[in-house]
Nucleic acid binder design. Structure first.
Lengths: 206, 206
DNA sequence: GCGTCCGCCTGACATTTGTCATGCCGAGTG
DNA sequence: CACTCGGCATGACAAATGTCAGGCGGACGC
């Protein structure tokens, strides 16, 4: 790699313990330098604008805006900045959305710091990397079989709201709402809409 | 503190990235030494038995057995070993169960490594420490208002199973099950049982 | 010992939810 | 163009759920 110019990193994770530890470990690598840290989505955006890092290492779940949203914004504002997403609970759907947002790497937090450093170099060099296990899950789960309305209604039903409320919020008749929930449930192989919500959540389809 | 004898630590966390980083950072402290690492609950138990650490730093959520379960076992097998729990998503109920299991410290992963090192010394010295914010949440949430049966039935209802199935598994009539779910929901201020499940989960009561 | 309270349990009734048959409309195909 | 297919939408009917009044029994205060 370019020995003279170190890779400038942005680290974003709401867990100070991890962020700090990571910053310390990655700084041990000769060719990596952490130029900014952030604990929330918006903060990460601000830091990226201010420091223009080469690679942004983002946690998937952060207060304010999640990693994918930040990646989407970065994509348009700083096209040169590669994004590497690190996550604890990788759901298949997240991976897909992340890749669509232009993310270059996607790995679980179970990797070692050593490996992470290598992957940072990989994405910086313009290559992509996706954890094989997460990729396998994503392929197994496949695309969401839900139509736009089905997904929308299912999402509104996610917190256990009654049909009447969903119908009002979606500007639909109650019968229609029941129908979408029903078809979504059968597509997902669920007994009822609540189990359907759970399954869709697991696969990252909502 | 005892300058001559360093505090021997066990680190358990399923996220290799964090565990490794943490081990590196804590090892920088003169008076701390990491003698064992584990990625799962059972592994943590085995490591504890083999190395008999002074303090065990446990993640709350691990495959196999969670931090509280490990703490309970440690309590009886190695009474001298102090337990410090570190967690990303601290639910009120977890804190209570942890303290009942004899845990000496309970902190979120948002603390810095520096602070964690101090807290390790604190619990090693025989003192307790609970993150003030988590403590406040726990006090605000209070004790579970649910009776034993209500909690049991609510748990069976957690994955969206129909009443008939719950009734069979709990060996109750359907009417009774409906009643428990209903009273649980009203106690929690929920519209229906699904919202009740969600709330109970958030508060750590199931 | 008696009344009272609370948890546990049940069935009957009203409400909510799931299922089905049906119609409308736009996209793709022969 | 006519046909078919799939997504969107609706209301009627059946099934599941939530609500209610009430019975049983143990624990507590007096």
């Amino acid at each position: 790699m370019t020995a003279a110019e170190p890779v400038r990193l942005l680290l974003a994770d709401d867990e100070h313990l991890i962020r700090g530890a990571l910053a310390a470990l990655l700084s041990l690598e000769e060719d990596l330098v952490v130029v900014a840290e952030a604990a929330t989505g918006p903060e990460a955006m601000a830091m990226a604008r201010a420091h223009k890092p080469d690679v942004a290492v983002l946690d998937l779940q952060m207060p304010g805006a999640d990693g994918v949203k930040v990646a989407t914004s970065l994509r348009s504002e700083l096209p040169g900045c590669k994004v590497l997403i690190v996550t604890s609970h990788g759901r298949p759907g997240h991976l897909k959305r992340a890749l669509q947002a232009g993310v270059r790497g996607f790995v679980p937090k179970t990797v070692s710091a050593q490996r992470l450093a290598e992957l940072i170099r990989t994405v910086h060099a313009g290559n992509r990397y996706v954890d094989p296990e997460l990729a396998a899950d994503a392929i197994a789960a496949g695309d969401s079989p839900l139509t736009a309305r089905e997904a929308e209604v299912l999402e509104l039903a996610a917190d256990g709201a009654p049909v009447a409320e969903i119908a009002e919020r979606a500007a639909l008749s109650q019968g229609t709402v029941r129908n979408y929930l029903s078809s979504a449930a059968s597509k997902l192989g669920a007994e009822n809409r609540h189990a359907a919500v759970r399954l869709a959540r697991e696969r990252g389809w909502v």
